[in-house]
Structure formats: C-alpha cells, structure tokens
Simulated scan of single mutants.
Amino acid sequence: MQKLSLIVPCYNEEESIMLFFDTVTKVIDGMNTPQKTVEPEYIFVNDGSSDNTLTIMKKLQAEHPDTVHYVSFSRNFGKEAGLDAGLNASTGDLIAVMDVDLQDPPELLPEMVELINNEGYDCVGTIQHDRAGQGWFRAWASSTFYKIINKISDVRIEPNARDYRLMTRQMVNAVLSMSEYNRFSKGIFSWVGFKTTYLTYESKPRAAGTTHWSLRELLSYSLTGIMDFSDVPLKIATFVGGISFFLSLIGIVFIIIRKLTVGGSVAGWASLVTIILLVGGIQLFCLGIVGQYLGKIYLETKHRPLYIVKDEK
C-alpha cells in the first residue's frame, strides 16, 4: 500500500471543496487494484477564508476522519504559506500539490504516480499548454516573466509550469529544509533539484467560484521570484550608477575645457535642470532596487513564522 497526500490550499472556496473531493476520490478509487492500493490523505489548508470554507472542511473531516484533515490559519497568509503548512502536515510516501478549483486535472494523477514508481522520477510537474481565458496582457506578462527570470537566474523555471505536481517524500523533505520567509515555490522546487519530468495539458475553466489572484498580486509575486533567485537587479543598479558617474565626469571635463577656451555662458539652465533630474532619477531608481532587497533581508531577520495555525485536525 502506498500513501498519497494531497495538499489543497483554499481561500474562500466553499463552492469547490466538495466537487474537488468527489472528483479526486473517483480518480484514486480507479487507481486501486488487487495488487496495489493507494491510500489517500487529503490535507485542506484554510487560508483565512471569510466564507464557509472552514465549515465545509470540518464537515468533510467528520465524515472521513481517517483520510481528510484540515489546517486553518488565524488570518490570510497567502498561498505560499498554505503550501508550506500542507507539506509540513503531510505524512504520505508521495505528495501532490493541487488547486481546489479543478483547473489541475486529477485525471493525470495515475500517470504521475506511474512515472515516479516505474521511471525513477522524484517529481512529476505539469505545464499548462495554453493560457486561454486569461487575457492577452496576463499571457504576455507571464511569458515575459519566465523569459526574464530564466536569463538572469541560475535556476531554470519551466515556463507555464503549474504548482500542480507530485513529489517523493525525499524531495518534500528537501523543500521543507528551506526555511526562508520570502518564498517562491516554483523556484524552490527547481532549486532543490531531483529528477523531474513534466506533463502537458490543456487549460480548463474553474469548476466553481472565481480567481483570487489580482494583476497587482501576480506582479508582486513575480518580483518576489526574481529577487529570491537572482541578484542581477543589484548588478543593474551598480552598472547604471557607474555609467551615470562616468557621464558626469565627462560633463565636468567638458565644462572646464569650455570655460578655459570659449568662456562661460549664462544660457543652459534648462538643460542643467534636466540633467540634475535625470541623475537624481537614476539614483532613486538604484536606491529603490537596493531597498527592495533590504526590505526582504529585514523580513528574514525578524524570524517571524510563515503562518499561524488557529485550528487543525
């Protein structure tokens, strides 16, 4: 018998939980044979929901006390905290991370399990073949993000890879050993290494409810990924500052030579102000980049917990 833990972060997903449970249960039941049995372990993480998400989790756990468990936060801490809490609570030999909205097709689970058991993989991830329904700007922004981070980071992140993946216990233990406060799970999954393959699938609409990721949150999450796995922005700030300093030196030499050869001039105040504003803008830009990194270092040094559990069972 092999135990399969399913980590399911939830935020205001009262409409999706039962649909998810029924659908995944049918898939897992179909995986069982007289020769081999898969024992499921559902770990639902309530990320400070304001609807009836926790109530439904408790009801489901009462009906299936041996297979369903839940962890409830004291407030909304974000999906990264939910993933970490679920991974910490899992006890399975294999651990899957899934979204409750069924955009991650459970039908892939049998193939994912087979690839790990029979092909020697430590992780089977998934890639969304297209980004239908997301709008052209989000699709373009996502594509641009992956191009940038893969150029400036030593860790390659598979474009359009989902959080939906199946991992061995050894890999999950390696992920949990990384205790940083600022987390970017896709980068962490890639950084720890291990033998990984990907399955591709067509995008699906949500089974119920609406997405809770705004464009601002996605952009913020992207910046976290870039800063967590690359110091190139700091190098850019250094380069821009160096170029600005060099051009300023040239300007000073030019002014001195002009003064000695042709004489001074009252004209040029507009251009002078423009140059001052340009140099000041460059300095503020560089300071902003450094400030972002310092802010993340500050949060790391505070050693605050990634989340606070209010209730679990």
Results as ranks from 00 to 15, higher is better:
99 D>L: 07
311 D>E: 15
13 E>L: 02
63 E>F: 04
285 F>N: 05
238 T>I: 08
145 F>N: 04
167 M>L: 11
239 F>M: 10
14 E>L: 03
59 K>Y: 13
251 G>N: 15
62 A>H: 14
148 I>C: 03
17 I>R: 02
51 D>A: 05
33 T>D: 08
237 A>G: 05
308 I>C: 07
266 V>R: 11
227 M>W: 06
11 Y>D: 00
183 R>A: 03
250 I>W: 11
6 L>K: 02
6 L>F: 13
277 L>I: 11
272 L>M: 09
296 K>C: 04
158 E>C: 08
194 F>Q: 07
128 Q>I: 09
130 D>T: 09
146 Y>N: 06
207 A>I: 14
113 V>Q: 00
143 S>R: 02
13 E>S: 04
262 V>Q: 14
268 G>C: 11
298 Y>L: 13
112 M>P: 02
15 E>G: 03
205 P>M: 02
93 D>S: 07
231 D>P: 02
98 M>F: 12
81 A>V: 02
165 R>A: 13
202 E>D: 14
87 L>F: 15
56 I>D: 00
101 D>R: 02
128 Q>T: 09
265 S>Q: 14
92 G>F: 04
13 E>Y: 00
95 I>Y: 00
75 R>V: 07
10 C>A: 09
274 T>H: 04
138 R>H: 04
101 D>W: 02
302 K>N: 07
17 I>F: 07
105 P>C: 12
154 D>L: 07
133 G>E: 06
3 K>V: 08
91 T>R: 14
279 V>L: 11
197 T>Q: 05
17 I>A: 07
145 F>E: 02
118 N>F: 08
142 S>G: 13
245 F>I: 14
47 D>N: 15
199 L>E: 03
118 N>W: 06
129 H>Q: 14
55 T>G: 11
43 I>A: 05
309 V>G: 06
86 G>M: 08
301 T>K: 15
255 I>T: 13
100 V>Y: 03
105 P>Y: 11
41 E>S: 05
90 S>P: 10
253 V>I: 15
150 N>L: 00
188 I>P: 00
171 M>P: 01
306 L>Y: 02
148 I>A: 05
306 L>M: 08
252 I>C: 13
233 P>K: 08
20 F>V: 03
140 W>K: 05
208 A>G: 07
177 S>N: 15
126 T>N: 06
228 D>V: 13
111 E>Q: 10
165 R>C: 13
229 F>C: 08
226 I>K: 01
47 D>V: 08
226 I>A: 00
233 P>E: 06
313 K>Q: 09
265 S>I: 12
89 A>M: 10
98 M>V: 12
266 V>H: 11
196 T>P: 04
236 I>N: 00
178 M>T: 12
30 G>N: 15
248 S>P: 04
215 L>A: 12
16 S>H: 00
211 T>Q: 06
256 I>E: 04
264 G>V: 06
113 V>L: 08
297 I>V: 15
255 I>Q: 13
269 W>S: 12
262 V>F: 10
216 R>G: 04
174 A>H: 03
